[in-house]
Write a protein that binds this DNA or RNA. Structure first.
Length: 797
DNA sequence: CTAACAGCAACC
DNA sequence: GTTGCTGTTAGG
């Protein structure tokens, strides 16, 4: 007799463990680990979807074992290693099994048709209803009277059962409808060979028509794009379509603009420079000893050539490779390079693919047709046959962290995958994460430096805003900056101002001496609360009133930190009324970005001001002055990673904006701040040493593991009670794990979405396995279930 | 005395 | 989530 261990697709932590089911004789040859099945569950024999993680001969379960009802997949959708990875994710990130599984099933849409139709007849009924069906379904009044069922009850029950049947039908249909993958296309245009000839042979045609044909020369375009060229493009295009110069077609919405068919597909071998050859040799040596390698990147093109070389070698030995970019847009912009080197072995995977395209990619990867996959996080969960190399590009980018549960950093998954499949993992970054560098220092990952440092940032001037104030300048921009902006305007060069105005101005600082109130225990800036005009610590709940006088210098000039983009624009237009100002910010779509980029390259912008996006999506040269106008707010964000984020974003900003002749400038109230100095000195190691010392002292990741529990509740009193009983329970359970951990008392966290009262409990521990063991225990004891509040677990990555 | 109800454990 | 079991209680 064969037994299958099955995880159920249920959103309940208490039943999220394997259940044993007997495999019916006739299915023994078909069923293996990695396929989904339908089983009956509970007293009511509800039909639920399950996933087989393993097959065994015997069971320890003493009760009555049920049989597997049906098979969903005709072959395993996860291989052995992937099943193990999925289980590891479940325990490591305290998620449900099916939540972890969802990352693997994202590309599987179309299911077996037989499954679809077979299930229409069966539905879940509980015992009471089954019993009712057996006894009372007949409309015969005599029988009903005998059985003592009131006619009106029968009506209600019949209705109930019929509703259930309907619901069941609906449910299965949604799950398995193969036609659900229908795509909605966008109208696009393609230049035919005939059209190309027409351009080359200088055939007579309208000016607009020629322009349109030429714009289609390099790639297909969507109607929306052509509209930007000429509002009435259809007028000139229609005759071209009639002449068969241009083909109109409907393509899937996103693939279209980036359709792989527009790229030249070649196979080229990689040629390295002498310096790169040395680096590559080192890389090969290091991968023999360790599975992880880190590229500290100072030369982007060199980095890619090394990537290609490494991939090429993997292909030669019959293995495949995957490259993970943080974002879809980055994937798109790197695509072409990959096609040039590896032609049709390349697959591109991202969230904007249609279900059909996804399934197609899944199949081709599984069958070994595609050997180089580039894409976003989820691309790592495809069924690679013989994976030799995983590359994570731009490791520091926050998009590498998955937002939905399980919350993880893709580099951690890559590490695990490489251990499971014996693949090399390669992380590349120009502004390393502290967590990654920590692994390098601990000798878990080897490091190679790519290219040489430019040391351009050393020219950055740090402007003391306290001095400015003392000398009578109450404005938001320093006199030096205004002076530089004026001269750069004169020389027709652009000024770029970076301001990170997202979020609230929630710290408080002394305008006189730059002092910021910090938590005595946790070392982070205290956050300002409007309700009671007080300052709170984000982690431990320490609370104090906003001081009237600065504790350091006794001044009364205590102010909220910060101003926004709008205020900056207003100020600039007053100080430099002739300057043409361009504003860029997060909520811009692709066309707006294009437009702005064009305006910048056409020299229509004198001063560009913007938030984070300025670093990623905009291209500019000829920058006269590049300035960070409000670094202090970012430095005092009230979380322990503030300095790290500041180092990364501001370094990148200056690298992007400065060439050898650009004036760099940072405005601050803390001119002695170490992070600012490290940015100026272009010295990551120096920054890291200071930062890791701070984290050691204050006990923050990566030194400790940190997890926070959030308790949500509508009712104020109950929220408090629940939070405290959870706190007590955690404390009690922790006793089992010896010492080396700290739990902070529940802290009431300020306004959250949905009007919920939220309490937060922070747990720090030196042992990673503590909360992995703690969570199942707390769940088993029913502590969280006993609470009326919703509880969520947030692991700090 | 009973219907109603909340609390609870189990689901293989 | 769904179910049945258990103990408690309001209402007659």
């Amino acid at each position: 007799m064969k037994i299958a261990e099955v995880f159920l697709n249920q959103t309940n932590k208490r039943i999220d463990h394997p259940y044993d089911y007997r495999i019916p004789q006739q299915l023994e040859s078909v069923i293996e680990a990695g396929i989904r099945v339908v089983v009956q569950f509970g007293i009511g024999n509800r039909r639920v979807e399950g996933f087989i993680i393993s097959i065994k001969e015997t069971t320890n379960f003493t009760g009555r074992i049920k049989e597997i009802t049906e098979i969903i997949d005709s072959q395993p959708i996860l291989n052995k290693e992937q099943i193990e990875l999925c289980l590891w994710m479940k325990t490591t990130y305290c998620s449900l099994f099916y939540e972890a599984l969802s990352y693997f099933t994202m590309s599987i849409q179309v299911k077996d048709e037989t499954y679809y139709y077979k299930n229409l007849g069966s539905f879940d009924l509980n015992l009471k209803e089954n019993w009712f069906l057996e006894h009372y379904y007949p409309k015969d009044q005599k029988t009903l009277r005998q059985k003592k069922v009131k006619p009106e009850d029968r009506v209600i029950l019949v209705e109930l059962v019929e509703r259930k049947i309907l619901a069941a039908k609906k449910r299965w249909r949604i799950l398995s409808d193969p036609t659900a993958a229908e795509t909605v296309g966008e109208i696009s245009y393609h230049l035919t060979d005939l059209g190309r000839e027409a351009i080359d042979s200088n055939k007579r045609m309208g000016k607009k028509q020629l322009e349109l044909l030429k714009s289609l020369q390099n790639n297909d375009m969507m109607a929306a794009d052509l509209k930007m060229l000429s509002a009435q493009f259809k007028k000139s295009l229609n005759p071209l379509i009639l002449k068969n110069y241009v083909i109109e077609y409907e393509a899937s919405p996103h693939q279209n603009a980036y359709n792989s068919s527009r790229f030249e597909k070649q196979r080229r071998s990689v040629v390295l420079t002498a310096h790169e050859q040395l680096n590559y040799k080192r890389y090969l040596e290091l991968t023999k000893a360790k599975s992880g390698v880190f590229f500290h990147v100072f030369d982007g093109t060199s980095k890619y050539r090394l990537f290609f070389k490494a991939i090429e070698d993997q292909l030669k030995s019959g293995k495949s490779a995957v490259v993970i970019f943080p974002e879809v847009n980055m994937t798109f912009s790197r695509m072409e390079m990959f096609y040039k080197y590896f032609g049709d072995l390349v697959g591109v995977f991202h969230g904007q693919l249609t279900p059909k395209e996804r399934t197609d990619l899944y199949r081709r990867v599984r069958d070994g047709e595609l050997k180089v996959v580039i894409g976003v996080r989820t691309a790592l969960f495809l069924p690679y046959q013989n994976l030799g190399l995983i590359i994570i590009d731009d490791d520091h980018d926050p998009s590498h962290i998955s937002i939905s549960t399980p919350r993880f950093h893709i580099a951690d998954i890559a590490k695990k995958v490489s251990a499971l499949m014996g693949a090399t993992y390669l992380i590349a970054d120009d502004t390393p994460r502290v967590a990654t560098w920590y692994q390098i220092e601990k000798n878990e990952i080897a490091k190679i430096q790519i290219g040489v440092e430019q040391k351009l940032r050393q020219a950055i001037e740090i402007v003391d805003m306290q001095k400015e104030m003392h000398q009578g300048n109450m404005g938001i921009l320093s006199r030096t900056l205004v002076k530089y902006l004026t001269t750069s305007l004169l020389h027709k060069r652009m000024g770029v101002l970076f301001i990170n105005n997202k979020g609230y101005a929630n710290s408080v600082l002394c305008r006189n001496c730059g002092h910021v109130e910090k938590c005595p225990q946790c070392g982070v800036a205290l956050k300002y609360f409007n309700q009671d005009h007080s300052l709170h610590c984000h982690y431990c709940g320490y609370k104090k009133a906003v001081p009237i006088k600065c504790p350091k210098c006794n001044s009364e000039k205590i102010r909220h930190m910060g101003f926004g983009l709008d205020q900056l624009e207003e100020y600039l237009s007053k100080v430099l009324p002739d300057a043409r100002i361009g504003i860029v910010q997060g909520a811009m779509n692709r066309t707006e970005i294009k437009k702005m980029n064009r305006a910048i390259s056409d020299g229509e912008i004198d001063i560009l001001i913007g938030t984070q996006v300025i670093i990623k999506h905009f291209n500019f040269t000829n920058v006269g002055v590049a300035a960070a106008v409000l670094i202090d707010r970012d430095l005092n964000q009230g979380n322990y990673q503030a300095s790290e984020t500041v180092y990364q974003t501001y370094s990148r900003f200056f690298v992007k904006a400065m060439d050898g002749t650009t004036k760099g400038l940072i405005q601050t109230h803390e001119p002695e701040n170490e992070t600012i100095y490290s940015i100026k000195n272009e010295n990551f190691q120096e920054f890291y040493r200071g930062e890791i010392r701070y984290r050691q002292l204050m006990k923050y990741p990566p030194i400790v593991n940190m997890v926070s529990f959030s308790v949500f509740q509508k009712n104020e009193k109950e929220a408090e009670n629940d939070a405290f009983s959870l706190y007590v329970a955690i404390k009690n359970e922790l006793k089992m794990f010896g010492d080396g951990h700290t739990v902070y008392k529940p802290v009431r966290v300020g306004a959250t979405k949905g009007g919920n009262i939220t309490y937060q409990i922070v747990l720090k521990t030196l042992k990673a396995e503590v909360f992995q063991n703690l969570m199942p225990k707390i769940i088993k004891l029913g502590i969280i279930e006993a609470l009326k509040s919703k509880v969520s677990v947030h692991i700090d990555l």
